[in-house]
């Protein structure tokens, strides 16, 4: 369950303030896969981080209940001087997950091998993303927050991600931000349109995409 109450959010830019949300009261539909549509800079990632709780609204409250993932594709959560395994253990502890199971899963999934015993700062960005993705798959979340995840790694790994996601969809839902209309179409049950200062929900994803396309062409 996630609900916005009187939420205001803006961020400072070089040429003035960019308003993301203004007095938004919004209840996200439960147990549905949600695709977030919005023009570049409308604040899709900010919205995702607000949902995740890694960013706070300027005012208002966000009420959240359940196991929400950190925004996937966002790998800033790893402490660079700790090893992969230490970061993994830390995440398990705060999410109350079984360390042994998660370790096995991540080792198997991420394909980073013994690098898991090295500090994160020695990782390439690809390894980092793979570790983050594997970890989020290993810890069972109710809602996965996905920020352009599908571009991680090579073809093989992408396939693996898709399969993992497909398996997760049985018990978990997704809130996803993507530029790719195809991805949105593939994964979402409903679409949310970020209109510049408000959220609009559309049960029909196709219709939302059309509206969005009209919107983008109009604005450009």
């Amino acid at each position: 369950m996630i609900e916005f109450r009187n939420v205001n959010k803006a961020y400072d830019m070089a040429n003035g303030q960019n308003i993301v949300l203004k007095n938004v009261n919004f209840k996200f539909p439960e147990r549905k896969n949600i695709g977030v549509l919005g023009v570049n800079g409308a604040g899709k990632s900010t919205l995702l981080r607000l949902i995740a709780g890694s960013e706070y609204p300027d005012s208002g409250r966000i009420i959240r209940k359940g196991r929400y993932s950190w925004p996937l594709g966002f790998t800033g959560s790893f402490h660079p001087s700790l090893t992969g395994i230490e970061n993994l253990r830390f995440a398990c502890r705060i999410y109350n997950a079984d360390i042994k199971y998660v370790t096995e899963y991540v080792k198997d999934f991420s394909e980073i091998g013994d690098y898991i015993y090295e500090p994160i700062k020695t990782y390439s960005s690809g390894m980092r993303s793979r570790l983050a993705f594997a970890l989020s798959m290993a810890i069972d979340f109710e809602v996965y927050l996905v920020d352009e995840i599908m571009g991680v790694g090579d073809q093989g790994f992408q396939k693996k991600c898709k399969d993992a996601f497909a398996a997760k969809r049985e018990n978990s839902s997704i809130i996803m931000v993507s530029h790719s209309m195809a991805t949105i179409k593939e994964y979402s049950d409903v679409a949310i349109l970020l209109t510049g200062d408000n959220l609009e929900i559309h049960d029909d994803v196709e219709q939302a995409i059309e509206l969005y396309s009209a919107f983008t062409t109009a604005s450009t």
Binding site: G53, S54, Y68, W70, S77, H79, P80, A91, I94
Partner: peptide, 11 residues
Amino acid sequence: SNKALLGYPQV
């Protein structure tokens, strides 16, 4: 020195 860990929202 722990800013990275704040990426986890509940921290």
